[in-house]
Amino acid sequence: MIPECVIYLFLGIGLFFNFMGSIGLMRMPDIYTRLHAATKCTTFGSIFTSLAVIIYGILWWYDGHSSYAPLATHTIVALAAILVTNPTGAHAIARASHRAGVKPERAVVDRLEEVKLP
């Protein structure tokens, strides 16, 4: 009973933050601020939806259905991959767009503009 409630709670939290990320993608003014919304919220939301899947898999595994074990372990691997690749991808997009000449909109300061990196 309690584990099911936890699963629904985690799914709800995850959906809320993924939803916020999507809204942020529409509302923010330029690419950098959109990346803020897109990376942080989707990573955090995906952590919680993945945790819900992991708990579900472990529950069924504990009940004696050992075919549910890979559901839990593979989701843990996917979670680790998300945690590493999501910020790295955001970093690559931000760096590429700054080098392509996209200026941060409404910026009060831009130190990267002043130094010329190789």
């Binding site: 990320g21 942080k40 919220c41 955090f44 700054h98 409404r106 009060v108």
Partner: peptide, 21 residues
């Protein structure tokens, strides 16, 4: 904290962006 912060900024639109070193 970051996520509540971003959610707050998404809803209110209060931003003051910049690139610092």
């Amino acid at each position: 904290k970051a996520n509540f912060d971003v959610a707050y900024r998404v809803i209110t639109g209060k931003i003051r962006p910049g690139i610092v070193r």
